[in-house]
Simulated assay, not measured.
Amino acid sequence: MNKIARLILASGESSPDMRYAAGFSTPDEFLYFSTDRERGVICSPLEFSRAVAQARDGVTVHAEAEFGGPDRLEMLTRLAASRGVAGYLVPADFPVLWADRLRGRGLEVRVEEGVFFPQREFKSSAEVDAVIRSQRAGEAGLRRAVEVLRESEITPDRMIRWRGELLTSEILRSEIDVAMVRLGMQPTGTICAGGEQAAQPHNTGSGPLRADWPIVMDIFPRSAETGYWGDLTRTVVKGKASELVRRAYDAVLAARELGKSLVKVGADPAEIHLAAARKMEEAGFRTGRSDKADFGFFHGLGHGVGLDIHEAPRLSPRNHTPLRGGEIVTVEPGLYYPEWGGIRLEDLMYVAPAGAARCLTEAEDFLEIP
């Protein structure tokens, strides 16, 4: 007996691999297994009927009692014996405690060092549609933010006031998030960073927003129904942008459009990244590091989007694996300088297996909001 079964122990809400394998999500952990003959899940009575209704085609739903549950160690021991396997192949994030317990029962536990489901990189038409729905919700959140900024007034000391109070990153973020929640999304970590905070790409933003300074809004909703994400970034200025900020915006926009034009089957992701980086460098925006922080363009050009917000493939200088068709990737160049903030513009691209790549983002591009 030397066969190995594949095993996931996780909740559908926390594990994209579980969501992908089982076809449904639960807040509590359950078991997924597959052998060369079958794929199945083992669920508690709380989730059994829902699993039967929602499980992916070809996945058999089992009750815990079939394997001596609810004792999970007993279930996994009996599962291995009944399927004639010597142990389990598990993903890299499998709990160490459970690996030790299984080994204590004489079962082999191997860790998949690579991606557990490489096929997740290549989306079906249904998956593309799910990402598009999330992206449209993100765009609705962006429209709400623009409405708020258009309704706002600039105070004599160049702050932004909305509905009688200073407009903060927190208020703007909440308006974006509420708009997306109404469309069935689960917003997490929406970025509304203004001024110097915008020079830190993952700073979510806090405190009052100032007029005439760039505000980076990075919006990435996850669908509560499907688990698929959208990803969208726009940068705006309430008031009048400086000449430097205008030039930086134009450089980032040109780099994004160049990057999008290069996304296609057979393209080298590293070359796409480097072409966009050169475009901004040629516009006069240098990348480097000071004694305070990195500046310029110092992150990858893009990443895959699906059941994870960041997944394969990466558009980065380290990835030379050609695009094969079926991927959904962001193209999001940015420029960041602690002296005045940052600019980032992000669209989603679908690498169609045949024909031209398709942009999945419909949001407009503009810098100033009077």
Score class of each variant (00 low, 15 high):
K240C: 06
R182Q: 09
T235M: 02
A179S: 09
M159Y: 05
A283H: 05
I176L: 03
A248H: 04
Q197F: 01
D268F: 12
A293W: 12
S261R: 06
K260S: 04
L253P: 06
K260H: 01
D231W: 01
G239K: 12
P221F: 13
S290T: 15
T188N: 07
S174Y: 07
I176S: 04
T155E: 04
R222T: 09
E196A: 13
S174H: 10
I154P: 02
G164Y: 07
G266H: 05
K260M: 14
I176C: 04
I215V: 14
G230M: 13
G266N: 08
D218H: 10
E271K: 14
L166P: 02
A248V: 11
E282S: 15
T204Q: 14
Q200E: 10
V236Q: 04
T190C: 06
G227F: 09
F220A: 14
A254H: 03
C192T: 15
S174D: 13
A179N: 04
I171Q: 08
S290P: 14
L167P: 05
G205A: 06
T204S: 11
A270Q: 08
R247H: 14
Q197A: 14
D218T: 10
M280R: 08
E170Q: 13
L183T: 02
D294I: 06
R222I: 04
E282C: 10
L167M: 05
A270S: 15
W213F: 11
M217P: 00
V263L: 08
G184Q: 03
G288Q: 07
W162S: 10
R161A: 14
R173Y: 07
A275M: 05
S152R: 01
T287R: 00
A276T: 13
G239I: 13
T287G: 05
R278G: 00
Y249H: 13
W162I: 07
G284H: 03
E282D: 15
T204K: 12
C192Q: 06
P269D: 07
D157W: 08
H273G: 07
E196K: 15
P221A: 12
S242D: 06
A241W: 00
M159V: 02
